[in-house]
Simulated assay, not measured.
Amino acid sequence: MKIAALSDIHGNLPALEAVLDDIGQRGADVVVNLGDMLSGPLYPSQTADRLMQLGLPTIRGNHERQLLAADPSRMGPSDRFARAALSRAHLAWVRELPATLWLESDVLLVHGTPQDDLSYFLETVTADGCRTATHGEVGRRAADVEATLILCGHTHLQRSMKLADGRLIVNPGSVGLPAYEDSHPFAHRMETGSPHARYASITRTPDGWEAVFRTVEYDWHAAAEQAASNGRPDWEAALRTGYC
Rank of each mutant, 00 (worst) to 15 (best):
H10R: 08
P14V: 09
E17D: 14
V19G: 07
R26F: 13
A28Q: 06
L42Y: 07
A48W: 02
R50T: 00
G55M: 02
I59A: 04
G61T: 07
H63F: 10
H63N: 01
R65T: 15
G76D: 09
P77R: 00
R83L: 08
A85I: 03
L86Y: 06
S87M: 09
W93I: 08
L97T: 10
L101W: 12
L103F: 04
D106F: 00
D106C: 05
P114E: 14
Q115W: 10
F121I: 03
D128W: 14
G129L: 05
C130I: 15
R131L: 02
A143L: 06
T148I: 05
L149W: 12
G153I: 02
L157Y: 05
R159H: 14
M161P: 13
P172A: 03
S174W: 02
P178S: 07
A179G: 05
Y180G: 01
D182K: 10
S183I: 09
F186C: 12
E191D: 03
T192A: 12
T192M: 11
G193M: 04
R198A: 03
T203V: 15
T203C: 12
P206N: 07
G208S: 03
G208M: 02
A211C: 07
T215R: 12
V216Q: 11
W220T: 12
A222N: 08
A223Y: 08
A228I: 03
R232M: 09
D234Y: 09
D234W: 08
L239W: 10
C244F: 05
